[in-house]
Design a protein around this nucleic acid. Structure first.
Lengths: 210, 210
DNA sequence: TAACCTACCAAACACTTGTTAGGGAAGGAT
DNA sequence: ATCCTTCCCTAACAAGTGTTTGGTAGGTTA
């Protein structure tokens, strides 16, 4: 029955994968626990507890703890790039592209907060494993999109040219994504409102102009 | 000899503590490994490997893995507050206080990069444990210092008053401290240079003024 | 009724974890 | 020569880890 003897990390094909509704619920609770306590500190028994089942029962739905993490992260990145690609395909000006990317990012944080938190915490060392190589790919594309926009803007005279572009890139990137560590859906501000204020700070600064 | 039978987390007194030079080296390598892989994912055998000794030998110098973490974090926070308190005691204007706090923060990142990285990754859930209650205290003082400065500046008309102050606080705080995740000592920019550019972005924005 | 599928449980497996106990080599002090 | 201190090793322990195996209640299909 199980022919995956010596082969590690064998993914089940879509055909033999069980009905997806329950999977989704379990992945959601797993993501929540991963985000709260970190991947390594999270035991499969804890996830199962939270879901109201026993640890072994998780293995009816998933190959391994690692494959849960894999599915959470790749689902998030797939959706993220759907949004980013739509923005980039519109070929707006640099400033409008930046605004759209920031807004889109906050929407993703709103929809995938646990996944974003996990990504931030674990992606650096996960990207070294072959299984999670797509994290490194994604990071490259990410840098390309943001850095390119900033460079275009500096060349076009809409962004300041006296700044180190890579510093500015990390500045904008970090500013946006660390929000996942404190953002709580259903809070006082909508994602769009947060994006508006963040953009105002990043673009205009917090100092009063004289 | 060891009278710490049922008492958990018993700290050794300064008198019975061994010579501090070796401790310092071991703490430095432990901090490096913690920062790279996360506290929970780091095994004491890994730390010992990196130090060229065996796992059990660590327990000649330290009570437990947790006490290593404790010492790393509290040493960092002690030094951080030495610097912050000096800045706050100077009673500068809001803008100058902000500039001094940011510059001081980047200096701390330069000197305690691993500790800062660990702090960011683990402080949230560590603060819940009684042993690490000082993390929560520190975070309260931290918020007080920064939020107070921003509020003073908004009232004095040097910072924009149309922004949500708490959003601005998190904005400034995060932009500064996440730098620890990519900063490498001895890189192209000195801490002061990075602080200068970050302050320029935070205060004036990255957009060109018309 | 019989066969089957889904989603779970109960119990164990091999392994890794932080930690401890006892010992010993090197070197300085007495 | 003896003692003491420092620093480490060897070898094990108990608890916790991810995972597997075989079984089973309950519903659906034939």
């Amino acid at each position: 029955m199980t022919e995956n003897g010596p082969v590690p990390n064998s993914k089940k094909t879509a055909a033999e994968r069980p009905a997806p509704e329950r999977r989704g619920e379990l992945l959601a609770t797993a993501a929540e626990v991963f985000a709260a306590h970190g991947y390594n500190a999270t035991t499969v028994r804890r996830i199962a507890d939270e879901a109201g089942i026993l640890a072994g029962s998780l293995y009816y739905h998933f190959d391994s703890k690692e494959s849960m993490l894999d599915e959470i992260l790749s689902a998030f990145l797939d959706e993220l790039w759907d949004g980013y690609d739509a923005v980039l395909a519109a070929r707006l000006g640099p400033r409008e592209t930046l605004e759209a990317l920031v807004t889109e990012s906050f929407r993703e944080i709103d929809r995938h907060r646990p996944a974003v938190a996990i990504y931030q915490r674990e992606s650096r060392h996960l990207a070294l494993q072959p299984r999670f190589a797509y994290l490194a790919d994604s990071q490259r594309r990410f840098e390309q999109a943001w850095l390119g926009t900033l460079r275009r803007g500096a060349a076009a005279g809409v962004f300041r040219a006296d700044l180190d572009v890579r510093l500015a890139y990390r500045f904008v990137r970090d500013t946006v994504w660390v929000a996942a560590s404190w953002y709580r859906p259903g809070g006082a501000h909508s994602p769009e409102e947060i994006a508006r204020q963040y953009l105002s700070m990043v673009l205009e600064g917090i100092a009063v102009r004289e």
